[in-house]
Simulated assay, not measured.
Amino acid sequence: MDTKLPPVFAALGDDTRWSILVRIGGEPASASELARELPVSRQAIVKHLEVLREVGLVRTRRDGRSVVHEADSTRLDEVGRDLLGIAAAWDRRLEGIRAIAESQD
């Protein structure tokens, strides 16, 4: 069984990247705008955005002289479905354990 954390979940595991994704999920923003709002340098924001872009969670586009970053809702939906599948599997396992425990009473 492969227990290595998929890259998308590793990317989401960082608090700063999570904050960036939540922020741009509401409204696209440039790295400069994000750096003004978060307690992180612009250079660090750019690196975090690159990680999010590499796993497909962020799209980048030019808007005049600015580079704007936005959440990729299609990829986020995929990740959400993956998480729901994991939760459903755990629910089935827990239900099985409960059934065994109750049958032993």
Rank of each mutant, 00 (worst) to 15 (best):
M1Q: 12
D2T: 11
T3L: 15
K4Q: 15
L5I: 15
L5Q: 09
P6C: 06
P6Q: 08
P6A: 12
P7Q: 10
V8D: 03
V8Q: 05
V8H: 04
V8G: 04
F9Q: 07
A10K: 14
A10E: 15
L12G: 00
L12K: 05
G13I: 02
G13D: 07
D14M: 04
D14V: 03
D14T: 02
D14L: 06
D15G: 11
D15S: 12
D15K: 13
D15A: 14
T16F: 08
R17A: 05
R17S: 02
W18C: 09
W18I: 01
S19W: 00
S19M: 09
L21A: 04
L21M: 07
V22M: 10
I24D: 01
G25D: 04
G25Y: 01
G25L: 04
G26A: 14
G26S: 12
G26E: 08
G26L: 08
P28M: 07
A29D: 00
S30H: 11
S32F: 10
S32C: 06
S32M: 12
S32A: 15
A35Y: 04
A35R: 04
E37M: 06
E37L: 12
L38Y: 00
P39F: 02
V40R: 14
S41A: 10
R42N: 08
Q43P: 07
A44P: 00
A44D: 08
A44Y: 07
I45F: 03
I45Y: 01
I45G: 00
V46Q: 10
V46G: 05
V46D: 13
V46F: 04
K47Q: 14
K47V: 11
K47Y: 11
H48C: 12
H48T: 09
H48M: 07
L49Q: 02
L49F: 01
L49A: 06
L49Y: 00
V51I: 15
V51R: 02
V51Q: 02
L52N: 00
L52G: 00
R53S: 11
E54V: 10
G56I: 05
V58N: 02
V58R: 01
R59E: 14
T60N: 10
T60P: 05
R61S: 09
R62E: 15
R65L: 13
V67I: 15
V68T: 08
V68G: 04
V68L: 12
V68C: 02
E70Y: 01
E70A: 11
A71L: 13
D72Q: 06
S73N: 13
S73V: 14
L76I: 14
D77T: 13
D77F: 12
D77E: 14
D77M: 11
D77P: 07
E78H: 03
E78M: 08
E78C: 09
V79N: 03
V79T: 07
G80D: 10
G80E: 10
G80I: 08
L84W: 06
G85I: 01
G85L: 05
I86F: 13
I86A: 15
A87H: 08
A87T: 07
A87C: 11
A88V: 05
W90D: 09
W90L: 15
D91F: 11
D91L: 13
D91P: 03
R92N: 14
R93K: 10
L94D: 11
E95A: 15
E95M: 08
G96I: 03
G96C: 02
G96W: 03
G96S: 13
A99M: 09
I100Y: 10
A101V: 11
E102G: 05
E102A: 13
S103V: 01
Q104H: 10
D105I: 08
